[in-house]
């Protein structure tokens, strides 16, 4: 196994990790503060990708299209919160699952009606296409851009939550919702804002993933479940935990897929090693989750110690 492969896989793992972080950050805030499970978070990811692809085809300018798509998805997120989810706070989680499952069906079918069942292509701008030499081998620029955007978003979130008034309210809300309300904060508006923020982050992840994965119906569901794993590993409600968990899951998944077959081939037959490696690699992150839970049931960095 050579060093170049290892370095490239590390970058790929980081790229998956930051995308997962963008998904998980919004989700974990919603879990932590509102104690709400939102299965439809993956729909925001899908919406972000579809709206960006549609706008790029319309105006042929990537960044304005992306910005508009984020705004649109944030608006949809806010609408969903106001019309539906607001009525489900404090209810049994079962009904939250049922309602958000219904929302997924609605969004998937709506996208199918508007854009057709076939995957569509999201054309990245010229300055993001192509490859640049890295460690002596070409590497896609778009993947580097995703890593940069992801890390920048993480920094921005850290600033927003740790250094601003809104962030202060978010932290206070996570600690003690009733007390924040009693102190005169309009908790409904706060929840709406958090929801819109989470939706925009998911849309950003979807729009960035669009050019490297296919823009298709249900694209948000696979990554949503990975984001759940991230949140469970990191600790529910903890944005820091989501960051650590996301990078961990991204790296373990990528290394597993790339290296396990070769690693097993050292002591198994090649065909057996390939088959077993693929199977184990596809389960690696869930095994990681089970291990973390066995030793730290509240996750690596729980929100409230």
């Amino acid at each position: 196994m050579d060093l170049l492969l290892l370095l490239q896989q590390t970058l790929n793992g980081l790229q998956l990790g930051v995308m997962l972080f963008l998904m998980a950050a919004g989700l974990t805030l919603i879990f932590g503060i509102m104690d709400l499970i939102n299965l439809a978070h993956g729909s925001f990811y899908m919406l972000g990708a579809y709206v960006t692809a549609w706008l790029v085809g319309l105006v042929d300018a990537f960044l304005p299209a992306l910005a508009l798509a984020l705004l649109a998805t944030a608006a949809v997120g806010y609408l969903v919160e106001v019309t539906t989810l607001r009525r489900l706070y404090g209810r049994d989680h079962l009904y939250q699952v049922l309602a958000t499952f219904g929302l997924i069906l609605f969004f998937n079918e709506g996208i199918k009606l508007l854009f057709g069942p076939q995957p569509i292509f999201l054309q990245p701008p010229d300055w993001l296409s192509g490859q640049i030499p890295l460690f002596g081998a070409p590497y896609p620029i778009i993947r580097l851009a995703i890593i940069a955007v992801g890390l920048a978003s993480a920094l921005l979130l850290w600033w927003l939550i740790g250094r601003t008034r809104l962030g202060m309210l978010i932290r206070a809300g996570a600690d003690d919702r009733e007390m924040v309300q009693a102190l005169g904060v309009d908790i409904a508006r706060l929840f709406g804002a958090i929801f819109a923020l989470g939706a925009a982050l998911a849309a950003l992840a979807g729009a960035m993933a669009g050019p490297i994965l296919a823009v298709r119906i249900g694209m948000g569901e696979d990554i949503l479940i990975l984001a759940f794993v991230v949140i469970v590993i990191g600790g529910i409600g903890s944005v820091r935990g989501a960051f650590v968990g996301a990078l961990l899951v991204g790296l373990v998944d990528t290394y597993g897929r790339a290296l396990l077959p070769d690693l097993l081939a050292v002591f198994l037959e090649r065909t057996v090693a390939d088959a077993a490696g693929a199977s184990i690699a596809s389960m690696a992150i869930y095994i990681l989750m089970a291990l973390v839970l066995a030793f730290r049931p509240r996750g690596l960095l729980p929100a409230r110690a």
């Binding site: 879990f31 104690d35 499970i37 989680h93 699952v97 479940i225 759940f228 794993v229 949140i231 469970v232 529910i236 088959a275 693929a278 199977s279 596809s282 389960m283 869930y286 095994i287 989750m289 089970a290 839970l293 049931p297």
Partner: peptide, 25 residues
């Protein structure tokens, strides 16, 4: 060992693990 939201997510994750296992078989 967990409750509430975590229980939902973990049961989902284990089921998904088995799903990918059979896809890879």
């Amino acid at each position: 060992r967990t409750r509430g939201v975590a229980f939902i997510m973990i049961t989902l994750a284990f089921a998904q693990m088995l799903f990918y296992f059979f896809v890879s078989l």
